[in-house]
Deep mutational scan, measured.
Amino acid sequence: PDLGLTQLFADPNLIENLKKNPKTSEMMKDPQLVAKLIGYKQNPQAIGQDLFTDPRLMTIMATLMGVDL
């Protein structure tokens, strides 16, 4: 199971919303991170391994779920 990750990354406004959010806007200036996020739309399971190697993803996930870290 993808634990709902498919829906989190399926939002067509995902990148724009993250660019507008004060907690994630600075991160979204990294083209490699943006490319990763776009890739998760097609393969949400890929985030599982990346969560352990890129701490920014935890902040992004929390933001998408509405959790304040």
Score class of each variant (00 low, 15 high):
residue 19 K to C: 08
residue 49 Q to N: 10
residue 57 L to T: 03
residue 13 N to H: 12
residue 30 D to S: 03
residue 52 F to N: 07
residue 18 L to I: 03
residue 17 N to I: 13
residue 58 M to P: 09
residue 3 L to S: 14
residue 22 P to C: 05
residue 36 K to H: 05
residue 15 I to H: 02
residue 69 L to G: 15
residue 7 Q to G: 14
residue 49 Q to W: 06
residue 68 D to L: 03
residue 13 N to P: 02
residue 22 P to K: 06
residue 57 L to Y: 04
residue 35 A to W: 05
residue 47 I to Y: 11
residue 32 Q to G: 13
residue 6 T to H: 12
residue 30 D to W: 02
residue 29 K to C: 04
residue 40 Y to N: 02
residue 25 S to M: 12
residue 16 E to P: 06
residue 10 A to R: 10
residue 22 P to H: 07
residue 16 E to V: 07
residue 9 F to R: 02
residue 29 K to R: 14
residue 22 P to F: 05
residue 55 P to H: 10
residue 4 G to W: 09
residue 65 M to G: 09
residue 58 M to G: 06
residue 68 D to N: 03
residue 37 L to I: 14
residue 26 E to M: 07
residue 43 N to K: 03
residue 48 G to T: 15
residue 66 G to Y: 09
residue 25 S to K: 08
residue 59 T to A: 11
residue 8 L to E: 03
residue 25 S to V: 08
residue 36 K to W: 04
residue 39 G to D: 12
residue 50 D to V: 05
residue 34 V to S: 03
residue 24 T to G: 01
residue 35 A to M: 10
residue 59 T to Q: 10
residue 4 G to I: 15
residue 3 L to D: 06
residue 57 L to P: 00
residue 16 E to T: 06
residue 11 D to M: 04
residue 33 L to E: 00
residue 59 T to P: 03
residue 56 R to I: 06
residue 13 N to W: 07
residue 69 L to R: 01
residue 6 T to S: 10
residue 64 L to G: 02
residue 45 Q to M: 12
residue 19 K to R: 15
residue 52 F to E: 11
residue 48 G to D: 09
residue 45 Q to V: 09
residue 40 Y to I: 08
residue 20 K to P: 00
residue 12 P to K: 05
residue 29 K to Y: 04
residue 11 D to Q: 07
residue 57 L to I: 13
residue 16 E to A: 10
residue 9 F to M: 08
residue 45 Q to K: 03
residue 5 L to Y: 12
residue 20 K to N: 11
residue 36 K to A: 08
residue 46 A to M: 15
residue 5 L to H: 08
residue 16 E to C: 06
residue 13 N to M: 08
residue 19 K to Y: 06
residue 19 K to T: 14
residue 45 Q to H: 13
residue 26 E to P: 07
residue 55 P to A: 09
residue 56 R to G: 05
residue 68 D to V: 02
residue 27 M to W: 07
residue 3 L to P: 09
residue 58 M to C: 11
residue 42 Q to Y: 13
residue 12 P to W: 03
residue 31 P to W: 06
residue 24 T to L: 15
residue 33 L to M: 03
residue 68 D to M: 03
residue 29 K to E: 14
residue 14 L to Q: 03
residue 31 P to K: 12
residue 49 Q to S: 10
